[in-house]
């Protein structure tokens, strides 16, 4: 029990860290490749531990991100709940994939995330920058890849524990 609570604290603080990371100032060149930390992390958590976070967590995180970045209230929220819905809906299938396909589906989800942001920017009449949307998708996918590969041994351990 205390172990579960401990890992809960870890997961929640990782989300707060993701919020902070998404507004940390970085040099211009790197900024183009700044991943959407919150989206990446929520996808990761929902795929690996689908019963920990749900749509409401995504909703709350999205609202916080909207307020933090000064976007339209609901813009990041909509993008986040869409992505989290997809990863929750298909987490069983995605988990059965080999790593390359997991990364592929994450790329699709992150691209969808960026597209929703881009689309709402366009509808709301704000300036859009289509090319700059590619960087975060690439870096986010790389991050997921690294997280999955480094986690691989741990994942195997938990699987055997669940099955036992």
């Amino acid at each position: 029990m205390s172990r579960g609570a401990q890992s809960n604290v870890f997961a929640i603080s990782s989300l707060i860290l993701a919020l902070a990371l998404s507004v940390v100032p970085v040099p211009q060149g790197i900024a183009l490749f700044k991943p959407d930390w919150v989206a990446v992390l929520l996808i990761y958590w929902t795929i690996t531990q689908p019963f920990r976070f749900g749509l409401f967590t995504a909703f709350a995180m999205g609202l916080a991100l909207d307020v933090l970045t000064g976007d339209l209230l609901g813009q990041n929220t909509l993008a986040l709940i869409t992505v989290v819905f997809l990863s929750l809906r298909f987490h069983l299938r995605i988990r059965a994939f080999p790593v390359s396909q997991i990364v592929g589906s994450v790329i699709v989800m992150l691209a969808l995330y960026q597209f929703i942001l881009f689309w709402i920017d366009g509808v709301a009449g704000r300036s859009v920058s289509p090319l700059a949307r590619i960087g975060p998708v690439v870096s986010g996918a790389i991050f997921i890849l690294i997280a999955l590969v480094t986690r691989d041994t741990g994942e195997r351990n938990t699987r055997t524990r669940i099955e036992a």
């Binding site: 749900g54 749509l55 409401f56 909703f59 999205g62 307020v67 339209l72 209230l73 609901g74 813009q75 929220t77 909509l78 709940i81 869409t82 819905f85 929750l88 809906r89 709402i120 709301a124």
Partner: peptide, 29 residues
Amino acid sequence: LALRFVLLTLVCFSMMLADHRDNHLSRVR
């Protein structure tokens, strides 16, 4: 899950609409 998703999506759209038109949500923000 789908139901919750649809509901939250509707909430998002109404929030964006209210925020975009005349800044109705400045208090919430």
